[in-house]
């Protein structure tokens, strides 16, 4: 059993948890994910590892409740245990294998959207620990949905932008990136993590701006070990499995339109309706998850 030691609500429907998972904590690196199961009947749910403590044998996850199983996770409290946690899965971010001296020469910008903010954290933190301070753009719908602000301030140059302008800069992350470039910032590498639609438009922009871009693909998954093929996507004309070949890929080569269509496979009518009701008019769609 994998015990929850700490649980906090970061924003509406977004929860952070620190969980005992010694084998995962011992070997994980930024960019990797794990799979949890709430109980014996539970689904296998992939979540990014947002931080880890090798000594204590714990990992941190941030989960947004959007459907049947993530709602179950959201109900769990400190002291409860997951039936299963397996990981780390997927490949670590390229940066951890890169030559540090080369890396130090690069100016890096992260673009984090929504709950995708959490997976950016371990990468920004890893860079900071290795003497590199990256720029981070966090995009959220409004002020209340901005998460992890304080922790990001410790490890990066932080820019926050909200769709409705209720906090930080105003507008989408793409506008923020364009503005920063117009203000004279130069970037050699962009890493974008968030809803697929956001990553798609970031990639479109960075292609114009000629900034190599890495994205993290949150496809549908079952096993996470390369066995089922549910997570397949097309990258540079080739079929790849997000769980073992990714989850990070060259964003300029990913077929986002196809990947977004594939997210619809198990979306039920009820699920879509529920999301629309819960989010009301603020749900603008386009995140790629609900196929609106």
């Amino acid at each position: 059993m994998f015990k929850i030691l700490e649980r906090n609500e970061l924003a509406a429907h977004i929860y952070q948890m620190v969980v005992e998972a010694p084998r995962v904590a011992a070997n994980c690196l930024p960019g990797q994910f794990l799979i949890v199961r709430v109980d014996e009947e539970g689904e296998r749910i992939p979540l990014t590892i947002c931080d880890y403590d090798r000594e204590k044998g714990t990992v941190e996850i941030v989960v947004q409740s959007i459907g049947a199983e993530t709602n179950e996770i959201a109900k769990m409290q400190a002291g409860d245990s997951f039936a299963d946690i397996v990981g780390p899965l997927g490949n670590p971010s390229d940066m951890v294998h890169e030559n540090l001296e080369e890396l130090k020469k690069k100016k890096i910008v992260f673009i984090a959207g929504g709950v995708g903010t959490a997976p950016v954290y371990p990468q920004a933190k890893w860079l900071k620990e290795n003497g590199i301070t990256a720029d981070v753009i966090i995009g959220a719908k409004n002020k209340d949905l901005v998460i992890l602000e304080e922790r990001f301030k410790e490890v990066s140059n932080l820019y926050i932008t909200t769709d409705d302008g209720s906090y930080g800069r105003s507008g989408m992350v793409t506008k923020c990136l364009q503005d920063l470039v117009d203000e004279g910032h130069h970037y050699d590498l962009c890493i974008a993590i968030g809803p697929m639609i956001m990553m798609k438009f970031v990639c479109k922009l960075t292609q114009e701006l000629n900034i190599p871009t890495i994205v993290s693909m949150n496809t549908i998954m079952v096993d996470g070990t390369g066995m089922c093929g549910a997570c397949r996507l097309t990258v540079g004309g080739e079929v790849k499995f997000a769980c073992v070949d990714g989850p990070e890929f060259d964003g300029h080569k990913v077929d986002f339109d196809q990947a977004m269509v594939r997210m619809k496979q198990y979306k039920t009518e009820e699920g879509r309706l529920k999301l629309a009701q819960e989010e009301g008019k603020t749900h603008k769609g386009g995140c790629g998850i609900c196929s609106d």
Partner: peptide, 22 residues
Amino acid sequence: AGLPRFMHIPGEQSLGVFSANE
């Protein structure tokens, strides 16, 4: 030997195409 093969024919990424393993 759990890694599934696909045919690499057009349309294989459509909704409703699965590996037997999945």
